[in-house]
Amino acid sequence: MAMESDPRSEKVRQWALMKAQSDTMTTRMNKLRDDIMADIVLHGDKDETGSSSLRLSVPVVVGNKTYEELKREARISTTLNEERALALAKAKGIENDVVAHVPTIDMDALYAAHADGRVSEEEIDSLFDTKVSYAFKPKAT
């Protein structure tokens, strides 16, 4: 005897199938990308920015796009190394001039103030914001 179709289960089946296909496709796409990037490093022309490019001998047309050249683009980001900056400030004697002291709440001291009766439970509770978010988490066995 055939089971009746359940629309919700059918949607979950379709979702799970698409998720599996998407995962497989993403893994394959990333492997192809990594192989192509290695090829660009080996055979491409490097420019003054550190980027490398490689022309395709045969252009690739997919849909309304034509791919004729590949690029491995160098992207540079600059961040301050706090440890070295603090060491330099100390060594130069300018620590008081360049270090910002930002006030922060010492949670242990705040709870101690509550324990001493200087801050009420309601006041403590009012200091915390609560945010609820939801995630789609199907259980698979």
Rank of each mutant, 00 (worst) to 15 (best):
M1A: 12
M3P: 01
S5W: 07
D6R: 05
R8M: 10
S9D: 08
E10F: 06
V12A: 10
W15N: 02
A16K: 08
K19T: 03
Q21F: 08
D23S: 09
L32A: 05
D34N: 11
D35V: 05
A38D: 14
A38H: 04
D39T: 08
I40F: 06
V41N: 05
G44V: 05
D47M: 03
S51T: 09
L56Y: 11
S57R: 10
V61F: 01
N64C: 03
N64D: 14
K65R: 15
Y67H: 08
E68S: 15
E68H: 04
E69Q: 15
L70M: 13
A74P: 01
R75W: 02
I76F: 14
S77R: 01
S77L: 00
T78H: 06
T79M: 04
R84F: 03
A85M: 13
L86H: 08
L86A: 09
A89N: 04
K90C: 01
K92F: 09
E95H: 10
H101Q: 14
P103W: 00
P103D: 10
T104A: 08
I105E: 00
D108Y: 09
Y111K: 13
Y111S: 00
A112P: 02
A112E: 13
H114A: 08
H114F: 10
H114D: 02
R118E: 14
V119Y: 07
I124L: 15
D125F: 07
T130P: 03
T130G: 07
V132L: 13
Y134S: 13
Y134H: 11
K137Q: 14
P138A: 10
P138T: 12
A140I: 10
